[in-house]
């Protein structure tokens, strides 16, 4: 646990969560994109590249046919236009999209991913250029070597060139921040786009006007922040099939722990838990104001 905190403070990622220090001085958490998600995104992008250039080819074919008929000039125009289209798609597709679309390409958009600066600086143009020009080696070299379009002909040498081509691309599998070499050069990471959902507050949801159960401070000193949030999760989950059974076990456990004498009848189990949650939260928040944080029931440190 402490080791993880250390790593997070150093700006390295733990279990795919990376903290980025923003220019405002507040660290923000990002969930890194899975390698599989990125692979799918790239496959989508390659498909879009192929389909879009095919569509443009057809359009150009149509236009040049309209303009020049069957003439010699037409062929020349046609092949120049084709060349320009494939030039753009091969070298500038990813770069243009990521610059114009705030770090997204079609594939990333579909997969809900985005490129951001790794160290809290704004995404730089030069960083995007470096990261996308690197694709020549990481993406297109293996593709070309893999399909055997270019390169030596003997089986052994083509195997060697294939291994060499994939070797550099494989870097992404070993990086803790799941960066590929282009990310390393550009100073970027690829993250999943967070979806903010604001759930209703459990205390307000219960609509307590007058608590049925009251607790003493000693009783509320038993548990800490962690247990409170577990209870919060329990109260939020309204549709468990074994709701009553879970509530009964939790109520028994809590009454035993805090030393409650009388047992509570089943129809008040929910009320009991709601009241206990509210009281416990109020208590912990008040203690926190005086600098006492209790992270869990085993956290006995009285030091602020």
């Amino acid at each position: 646990m402490t080791f993880d905190l250390q790593r997070i403070r150093e700006g390295r990622s733990v279990h795919g969560v990376r903290r980025v220090m923003t220019p405002e001085g507040v660290e923000v958490e990002f969930v890194l994109a899975d390698r599989a998600q990125r692979l799918v995104a790239v496959i989508i992008d390659l498909t879009v590249q192929v389909l879009a250039s095919l569509a443009l080819f057809l359009l150009i074919l149509f236009v040049s046919g309209l303009l020049f008929g069957e003439g010699i000039n037409g062929t020349e125009f046609f092949s120049v236009a084709l060349g320009l289209v494939s030039f753009f798609f091969q070298f500038f597709y990813f770069l243009t999209l990521e610059v114009m679309w705030q770090g997204k390409t079609v594939g990333k958009h579909v997969m809900g991913l985005r490129v951001i600066g790794a160290n809290g600086q704004p995404l730089a143009l030069s960083g995007l250029v470096a990261r996308n020009f690197m694709r020549q080696v990481e993406l297109f070299l293996p593709l070309v070597a893999g399909t055997g379009l270019v390169g030596p002909t003997s089986a052994l040498t083509s195997l060697v060139s294939l291994a060499w081509a994939f070797g550099l691309s494989a870097y992404i599998c070993f990086d803790a921040d799941r960066r590929r070499l282009g990310d390393l050069l550009g100073g970027t990471i690829v993250v999943q786009q967070a979806k903010p959902v604001l759930l209703p507050d459990v205390v307000m949801q219960a609509q307590i006007t007058e608590p049925r159960f009251r607790f003493t401070q000693d009783q509320l000193d038993t548990y800490g922040r962690f247990e409170l949030q577990v209870l919060e999760g329990l109260l939020r989950d309204q549709h468990r099939p074994d709701q009553e059974d879970v509530f009964r076990r939790v109520v028994e456990r809590i009454s035993l722990k805090i030393g409650l004498d009388s047992s509570i009848s089943p129809e008040f189990h929910r009320d009991f838990l709601n009241d206990f949650y509210a009281a416990q939260r109020q208590h912990l928040e008040r203690e926190a104001l005086y600098g006492k944080r209790k992270d869990s029931k085993s956290d006995d440190s009285d030091d602020p």
Partner: peptide, 18 residues
Amino acid sequence: YLEALSARAYSLMYTRPN
């Protein structure tokens, strides 16, 4: 919620070259 909201807002604030 705030973690997610901040992350999303950050990625919209700082992903476009000025």
